[in-house]
Design a protein around this nucleic acid. Structure first.
Lengths: 186, 186
DNA sequence: ACAATTAAATACCAATCGGTAACAAAAATG
DNA sequence: CATTTTTGTTACCGATTGGTATTTAATTGT
């Protein structure tokens, strides 16, 4: 059982459940290694969660950034975001990042800092996307870009969180489509 | 320090922080009573949380039901909901019910059952409100009433949760107004 | 005033948490 | 071959969790 495998086991566990509900003991047991081995590799629970988050960001969140920076038009990009949030099978148990963000106060300083950093990057990406849409002459409602970016980000987060709660995919898609319709209205 | 005072202390503590982050030990200490006294009165942590939730529902959630069943028009009621979510000082640290609902899996069976019950009642109230608006000839977008009810409820929950996260009140009002504008558009 | 009952507090329980010290096996180095 | 260094394990630490058995204090009935 190699270190990268351990990280994979931890990511799966944190992802499926809430990170705050998975103990290091449970992870060592699932990975079939001893506790000191884990601590020698990652230093602390905080270090482990940070490593997991980084791996998750590279493996999953990157896809969202790709969608946002794809240079497609407003409607097409919004549709891709809706598809991702309401249909991507990886989001069936929710998004690990959003779970961590929702329980930010329960994280150690390292992981919390990274969560805030990723969150800021996300906001920036949403804002850049909306700005470029506006520059391209596509109206995005009267609202300022930063407010729209936050709105967009929160609606995506809400949709994915609802998927983790076991809500019906079609229902979620309906609601998200409705929420984002404010961007594509006259 | 009477029993009702203890309930008040517990409600304040659960409300300000996340219920999952407040131990019975902490509550007995804050209330200045001994642990067996609390257990004699409420039976278990689950029993205490249930009692707190009931008290909270009567003291706070009832106001939301009053708004919904007020019989006012669509716009007026939506505005009242927006005011409540984004300006009511009691929501400055979020809504205890939404906090409990977000961490449903961490609750005992009694409290969890009540949370689900209240949630269902909320959905029904939202649906009844939208139905009456539609009956009164006010268009609420093309969508089915049940989907609209869920959307409305989740947007309110999102706004209040963001207040708990310390987000700017004006910003929250902007976003909620935007989200609910789908109901009052041609 | 004394006995019986109720209320409350002290002190404890087992389980679990994150984290580590002490120790055994294996691999690399001289 | 002998030695050092790395790897991994067992067994433990103090703190905290929800929950209780036992004992002390206050109240009540007679």
């Amino acid at each position: 059982m190699n270190n990268d495998d351990v990280l994979g086991v931890a990511m799966a566990a944190y992802w499926q459940a809430d990170p705050a509900d998975v103990s290091v003991n449970a992870i060592t047991q699932m990975a079939g290694i001893s506790k000191p081995s884990l601590y020698r590799e990652f230093g602390s629970e905080d270090g482990l969660k940070l490593a997991v988050l980084d791996r998750y960001a590279e493996a999953v969140l990157s896809d969202m950034f790709v969608i946002l920076h794809g240079g497609k038009g407003l409607r097409e990009t919004l549709d891709a975001l809706i598809d991702f949030a309401s249909d991507d099978p990886r989001m069936e148990t929710g998004c690990l990042f959003y779970k961590m963000r929702a329980g930010k106060h329960r994280l150690g300083p390292l992981t919390r800092a990274r969560v805030e950093q990723i969150d800021a990057a996300g906001q920036a990406a949403y804002a850049a996307f909306l700005q470029s849409a506006r520059d391209a002459g596509e109206g995005i409602g009267g609202l300022p870009v930063t407010a729209g970016a936050m709105y967009l980000g929160e609606q995506i987060a809400l949709a994915i969180t609802q998927r983790a709660a076991g809500e019906d995919k079609t229902r979620i898609r309906e609601m998200l489509t409705l929420a984002l319709s404010v961007f594509t209205r006259p």
